[in-house]
């Protein structure tokens, strides 16, 4: 029912003019501060629409008098960053990683920049600080699969390992446990010989048998005394560093069906200056040659 709007005698406020089963409702106005926020936000919206991109118009949109674009703002912001780092970046782009390492100031800059890039891109596999984990080599020691000179690290970073890039570092260990290459006892003998390289073998007879096999099948890549070959990424077998584990069972598994890691090529993904800073950072982790 609609009734007359009337003043409520208790509060002095008008009623809405509606009545429900004898109950009438007060028409108390919202607090004025709330209404002011409301009006001001309308004014803000109107100003915003004039200044900034706002209304879609089919294939285009109102550009706003400021001509703001988030993408152009990014360009400006990136240019500011480059300007702040300008002198360093110019030098880093001009020099090789080895030359950067020789310049103390540049080296410090590159190590800091490399640290950040390493956290974003490399740590997921090589761990923070380059300490490595099972199947992902440590970069903080002086044992290298593909060389630890600044230029070696730089090349590995650029093109990766078995990455599919045209210039990738690549090599493959044959699966000696399949086909006719080695019988099961023979793989165990070779593993025993490999253990003996780090003085962990207890079976002299097996070592003698394994040594002959090793000489024929393994030495061409891993070296006569197990020193490895960085030209083809063949790991040394005479040290305590084991990418896929150093127990006899793990060594046999690697002979039978070798695991071979993949490192992505970063040349298309990161800027050359970033790759150089990363090379310097990795070199400076402690094991650089």
């Amino acid at each position: 029912m609609t009734t007359e709007r009337e003043k409520d005698s208790v509060t002095g406020t008008e009623t809405t003019g509606h009545e429900w089963d004898g109950i009438r409702e007060l028409d108390t106005p919202p607090p004025s501060w709330l209404m002011w926020i409301f009006y001001l936000s309308i004014v803000f919206a109107a100003v915003y629409v004039v200044l900034y991109p706002a209304i879609p118009l089919g294939g285009s949109y109102t550009k706003g008098v400021l001509g703001y674009s988030s993408r152009e703002a990014l360009d400006v912001s990136m240019a500011q960053l480059r300007k702040a780092q300008g002198q360093y970046l110019v030098q880093i782009n001009a020099k090789s990683p080895a030359e950067i390492l020789k310049d103390p100031q540049l080296r410090t800059f590159a190590v800091r920049g490399g640290l950040v890039a390493f956290g974003d891109n490399c740590a997921a596999c090589h761990n923070l600080g380059g300490t490595g984990r099972h199947a992902y080599p440590s970069l903080a020691d002086d044992v290298w699969l593909w060389g630890g000179k600044p230029a070696d690290i730089y090349a590995t970073l650029k093109y990766g390992i078995r990455s599919g890039h045209d210039k990738t570092r690549t090599s493959a260990m044959l699966p000696f446990g399949t086909g006719q290459k080695m019988t099961e006892p023979q793989t165990a003998d070779v593993a025993e010989y490999v253990l003996s390289l780090t003085k962990r073998s207890k079976d002299a007879a097996a070592v003698t048998r394994g040594a002959a096999l090793y000489g024929r099948q393994c030495a061409s890549c891993h070296g006569k005394s197990g020193g490895g070959d960085q030209k083809q990424g063949a790991p040394a077998l005479n040290d305590q560093i084991w990418l896929y584990g150093g127990t006899k069972a793990e060594i046999i598994a690697q002979i039978v069906r070798p695991k071979m890691g993949v490192m992505p090529a970063w040349v298309d993904r990161l800027k050359d200056e970033t790759l150089k800073m990363l090379s310097v950072y990795v070199h400076a982790l402690g094991g650089g040659k």
Partner: peptide
Amino acid sequence: GGKYSNAW
């Protein structure tokens, strides 16, 4: 894409 190896 391309940031990590398949094995990873």
